[in-house]
Simulated assay, not measured.
Amino acid sequence: MSKNGFWAISLLLGFFGCANDKPALDNPSRGSIIVAADESFKPLVTQLTSAYSGIYPDTHFEIVFKPEQQAINLMLQDSARIAFVTRKLTQKEQAVLDQRKIVGAATKIATDGVALIINRSNTDSLLTMNELKSLFSGKITQWSQLKGGNQTGPITLVFDNNNSSNLEFVLNTFKVNNVRNLRIFTTRSNREVIDFVRKNPSALGFIGVNWISDGDEPLTAELSRDLRVVGVSDKANPTKRDDYYQPFQEDLGMMRYPLRRPVYVLSREAHPGLGSGLVNYVARDAGSLIIYKLGLWPSVPYNREVNLKN
């Protein structure tokens, strides 16, 4: 064999060896990916990914919980494959994927709500959207300005993070551009909001409803202890208690609770991989059942078949 022929064969072997050394792409039943999620969806995302890994033991999800914008940025920067958030990408954000020739996808999986919570010693558990608007415009600052309450002193509005989806959703709902003069206190998580409200009767907390809506989860009972969930009415002058709705399943699904919002899974996956497998699972019957169990309203309802025998 000539010297040139020897080197040609060596190069070919080296090429194929390198190709074989490339890590195999993940697929719906095997592999590991990073998932970003807004922290307000921690119970939801934890249960969905845990259930999926229970079906496919060779899958692993590293979940990073961040404020919504940071979760989206992780997905755009390819530091996460998918992201659980409350909105689709903006045109500017979509352009980031377009530049890399990535189509991307946004799949709505559920309807969620922002729950308003107060200390159990506070009897003022009914608010109108007009009253909430006045709270965020600065016209109402004291509990004594609200009807039916037993609290006095200033109202402290408590959120989980300066950049959280809960805060952004409420500010957008009431078209608030400047929070400088508002009495807003932020913690580091939805759970810390719950703890703060439990210790402070003057607080009005805002959390993702999935933190307190799973009736079968012991943690829900623990977190709900010593709290009231506020009923909200979009009527200007409600006359009865039935005019107020809480952020629980039927009122979310029937669009009666005013502070409802969608839950999306954003994906940058370019092949039929583990991210697609999880999204398909979530958007179909099995995943919908978990969403339903958590007290949210699934985008694809879980159909139960009942056989009746004579």
Rank of each mutant, 00 (worst) to 15 (best):
L135S: 06
L135Y: 05
Q151W: 01
T141D: 06
Q151M: 15
V158C: 12
T152P: 00
N122M: 09
P154R: 13
S165I: 02
T111L: 13
S165H: 07
I155Q: 08
R120K: 15
L167Q: 13
N150V: 05
V114Q: 08
V114A: 04
T107D: 12
N163T: 10
K108G: 07
F159D: 06
L135R: 06
P154Q: 14
I155Y: 07
I109F: 09
M129E: 14
I118F: 00
I155V: 15
I109P: 04
I155K: 06
L126S: 08
T152R: 10
A105W: 05
L132G: 01
P154L: 13
F136T: 03
L135N: 04
R120S: 13
G148M: 07
S137H: 15
G149P: 03
N161V: 01
I140H: 03
G113K: 09
S134P: 01
N161M: 00
G153D: 03
Q145W: 01
P154W: 03
S164F: 08
S125M: 03
I118T: 15
T128N: 07
T156P: 00
A115L: 04
D112W: 12
A105Q: 13
T128I: 09
L116W: 01
T111G: 03
L116T: 04
A110N: 09
V158D: 11
K108C: 01
D160N: 14
L146D: 01
G153W: 03
K139S: 14
T152L: 04
I155C: 09
K133P: 00
S165Y: 04
A110D: 12
S121V: 09
K147H: 10
V114D: 04
T107W: 05
S165V: 00
T141K: 15
N166R: 10
T128S: 14
D124L: 07
T141I: 12
L127K: 08
K147P: 00
Q145N: 06
G153Q: 05
D160Q: 13
T111F: 08
G149A: 06
N166V: 11
I118P: 01
G149L: 04
G104V: 10
L132Q: 12
I117P: 06
L116K: 00
A110M: 08
S121I: 04
T111P: 02
A115K: 02
Q151G: 02
E131K: 09
S134A: 14
M129P: 00
K133A: 14
K108S: 12
V158F: 11
A106H: 02
Q142N: 13
G113M: 09
N162S: 11
N166P: 00
N150T: 06
G138S: 08
N162M: 07
S125A: 12
V114L: 09
T141Q: 15
D112G: 03
T123L: 12
N163L: 12
N122D: 11
T152H: 10
Q151E: 13
T141H: 07
Q145K: 11
G104D: 10
S164K: 07
I109T: 10
I109M: 10
L135V: 02
A110R: 07
I109A: 08
T123V: 11
T156G: 04
L132V: 11
L167Y: 05
T123S: 13
S165K: 09
F159P: 06
A105V: 00
W143I: 02
G104K: 10
T152C: 00
S144E: 14
G153L: 07
N162T: 10
D124R: 15
